[in-house]
Nucleic acid binder design. Structure first.
Lengths: 236, 236
DNA sequence: GCCGGTCATTGATCGAGGTCAACGCCGCCT
DNA sequence: AGGCGGCGTTGACCTCGATCAATGACCGGC
């Protein structure tokens, strides 16, 4: 478990963001628009654990992961973020997590003082944070009480668009299939689920053998029976 | 792991709260004071998982735990709350967690619409939620990557007042002692740390044998060497 | 005092998942 | 083409924590 993954230091974004007035029609625009608009590629780090941060980030598009390291190298990916999610908070002036894009992303960076001054912004952020709080509660359940296969099944269900881990069409319903993109390596999935990459691999293989999953490429999995997979998450 | 604790259905609070204007000088009073003020005893449940909730709660004094159940009875305590913390959010109209007092508590219950209408209140809540978010990130690290003894040590450090799990006075410093109250049973500690009660008990015994802990009563533990305990949390 | 219930401790054994290691696949570079 | 490095899979083995079970400590009621 020591050094679950050495030398993972992707290049930090430098200046491919544009300073200025953000205007985004795809997302409910807050009244305050004094935000930096960042456009990042895949696998770029936004902040490192311990960095001084003065910004709060709002993810418009793409995916971001938040992770933490223990001094001996053990890593935990504490949150996976999608469009609408926010991050960059901390009790102190330094970030408690690292943030890295999992795929090309667009985001808004608000100065903390800007946020403190704007009620609209705070309402938006509070709304979102409460959703993320619930997500973290769910994840604590997963990490504390679920088996390896249940964790992987839950993870895959979370990847299903518009279903967010919530339920299948109903038991007995005609088995439906979904193709999901998995923008994480096995090691990353392991670090997210509190497992090792071997255990994750074995769980994938098991689900494949059982016919719940079909895949060739590792980053594109066909869930052959959403309903049945959903029932192996332990939550139903 | 099935039914980690059957028949735990403490009495629900009924009517020992006073409706009306809350005025509390011990806590930074929000401008909006349209809150129900609840005064509860120990071991009373505030909401059950699945209950319809229209309120957001602000804990003024005491301690509350939030827990979730899996259909087969596995339980996870997802958060331990102290004065200042907030809860009662949910993506849906139903609570995603149960809330129960761990000791006598005073709290404020705000109607959701009241919150939505008050910028002051939202600012207060957002501030607190971001702290709780960080706490949950930390806890995910614990659940996903720490060993049993590290978890128990981390838990005990979190119980140290005014130190919140953060650091010892410094290595080499004269060993300092603290007496901490532990208002949880071993089973509850286990459900919080993602372990079984036996494993928790063994970890306590081990730490005691190593001289890091001294105790007779189970709910009052003397940390004999905060610094050394802190070093067995895995975080330093 | 005795008794029953709850909670904690301790021991013995088991098993899920971690660890270590070999190998396969695939894309990329020269 | 050949070689190489990153990622994933699979197998063999081991360990930490779960499980099962017995016992002990404490507390309240009669």
């Amino acid at each position: 478990m020591l050094d679950s993954n050495l030398d993972r230091t992707p290049p930090k974004h430098d200046a491919n963001w544009t300073l200025g007035i953000a205007s985004d029609d795809a997302f409910p625009a807050p009244a305050e628009r004094a935000a930096r608009h960042l456009a990042l590629g895949s696998r770029e780090t936004i902040v490192d654990e311990g960095d001084e941060t003065r910004s709060v980030y709002l993810l418009l598009e793409g995916a971001v992961m938040l992770s933490k390291l223990l001094p001996d190298g053990r890593r935990q990916i504490v949150e996976l973020l999608g469009p609408g999610d926010v991050f960059g908070f901390s009790t102190t002036a330094r970030s408690d997590v690292s943030a890295e894009t999992l795929r090309p992303a667009r985001l808004l960076a608000y100065d903390r003082r800007t946020v403190a001054a704007s009620a609209t912004l705070q309402a938006l952020i509070a709304e979102r944070m409460s959703a993320q709080l619930c997500g973290l509660h769910d994840h604590a359940m997963l990490l504390g009480r679920k088996s390896a296969v249940e964790r992987v099944a839950t993870f895959l269900m979370r990847m299903v668009p518009r279903r967010g881990g919530m339920g299948c069409a109903g038991p007995g319903t005609t088995a439906d299939k979904v193709l999901v993109k998995v923008p994480l390596t096995r090691q990353e999935i392991a670090d997210y689920l509190g497992l090792t990459l071997e255990t994750v691999s074995r769980a994938f293989s098991l689900l494949k053998r059982q016919g719940l999953l079909v895949y060739g490429r590792h980053d594109e999995v066909m869930i052959a029976d959403v309903c049945r997979l959903c029932c192996t998450t332990g939550s139903h």
